[in-house]
Design a protein around this nucleic acid. Sequence first.
DNA 1: CTCCGGGAGC
DNA 2: GCTCCCGGAG
Length: 346
Amino acid sequence: MEKHINKHLLGWYKNNKRDLPWRRLQANKLPNPYYIFVSEYMLQQTTVPTVKKRFEEFIKKWPNIKKLSLISESKILNFWVGLGYYTRARNLLKAAKLIQKNYRGRIPENFEDLINLPGIGDYTAKAILGIAFNQAFIPLDANIERIISRIFAYQLPIIKIKKQLEKKSIKFISKKYSSQLIQAFMDYGSLICTPRNPKCKICLFNMNCKSYSKNLQNQIPVKNKKISKKLLKFSRAYIFNNEKNEILIRKRPSKGMLASMFEVPNDVWVNNKKDLIKDKLILNIKNKIVSKGLVKYSFTHFDLETEVFIINVKKNKFLNYRWIKQTKITKSGLPTLMKKIVAVAI
DNA sequence: CTCCGGGAGC
DNA sequence: GCTCCCGGAG
């Protein structure tokens, strides 16, 4: 059955593959390993459409490991703005520096070396080996997990059946066409065997799908049991606007949320509104402070509600701070939350 | 507006 | 098992 499904997938892939910039084939009929390496970091917890917009920009700036290995962390963090999960950017840069130093700039072609690089886990190591080097692996991403759990109609959350999925996935591995098959699976999951309302009617191997035969395709994969309602936290943010229409920003601590990213001054995030404590910068301000409304923002494990204030100040009262022009906010190194906060105020 | 999808580190 | 963001769908 696995061979039969693979054949359909490979045939389908020929005519239906997504045109993605990191997939362009080299003379050896495989993609550029550096492109796969970079794209897999970007694709962790981030959807293809978002990565598509940013990948080519990245490659233009840093076209190979060597170029990338020479830059500083602040450069890559500044680029990463809007992609989120900023640890990925730090790890990508660390990995590039290690590859330049220890492997003369060549992406390692074996599992051991890859998985020891920062930011590369089981999935990413197998994805790089399979897609870029055509080695016989099946990386279990959300698409492939969904397809396999539907084929076998597993009625438990993915997290509970990782072992079974891994075992089943091995039978699908292709020695000869590994690179194409992996990408075929992923595209099929993204376009046909979709998370919601899968297109079972036109699926090429619906006769092999236990979920389809039991009409369970909309229940599988089973959702992870509900995480209790997200915590709501509170903050207040202060837009210091100077006579040149510039806004004061500063760097966040190197640990925790939005680590080392820029921010506008804001109070420590607290669970109860009444526990809010004014940020040091605002304490001795006599100028008029005007509320501009609320910004709600959702993180992985809590939501944040921030009241935004604007204060007109003189630039020379705030030495040792960075300012950015109001007109340059969208292109600035501010993470998305901070851009939304500024947008409410101006 | 709410909900949901998407891997690694510790 | 908890911590890390953001965009798109409904």
